[in-house]
Design a protein around this nucleic acid. Structure first.
Length: 109
DNA sequence: GAGGTGACGACCC
DNA sequence: TGGGTCGCCACCT
């Protein structure tokens, strides 16, 4: 928000995701008014792992509820973090995704 | 300085 | 209904 960069805005919104919930690239992009820039959201999250303060990038998955960036976390770290927060994962996909889905456009608004 | 890539999503055919 | 292509902006080579 303070930073006009779309990149930083993604990190800000991602940080607002409550534990036990998951969000999507499209939801964050839509909240920022750039749903077309979903690729940028994923790119921002990639850097979010190396940025401070720590961003719960593991709570962000793709539109299918699939842990797209699991490989970037290093093995099953992403899945482990989600399970630790109460999010059930099966086949690299979030179970009850529709229920756990956290939409900033609605929840955060 | 320019070109290509990238945790995706939506639109078009 | 399904497959293919374009778009978006920042970072890396």
């Amino acid at each position: 928000m303070q930073d006009p960069n779309f990149f930083t805005s993604v990190l800000e919104v991602t940080r607002l995701i409550p534990a036990g919930r998951v969000s999507t690239f499209g939801a964050i992009g839509a909240y920022l008014g750039a749903k077309r820039s979903s690729r940028m959201v994923g790119y921002a999250l990639k850097a979010a792992i190396h940025v401070t303060p720590p961003v719960p990038a593991h709570r962000v998955v793709n539109r299918q509820g699939l842990l797209s960036g699991k490989h970037h976390f290093g093995g099953d770290v992403m899945q482990n973090l989600l399970e630790k927060e109460g999010v059930e994962i099966e086949n690299n996909q979030v179970k009850n995704f529709d229920q756990l889905f956290w939409d900033p456009t609605k929840e955060l608004l």
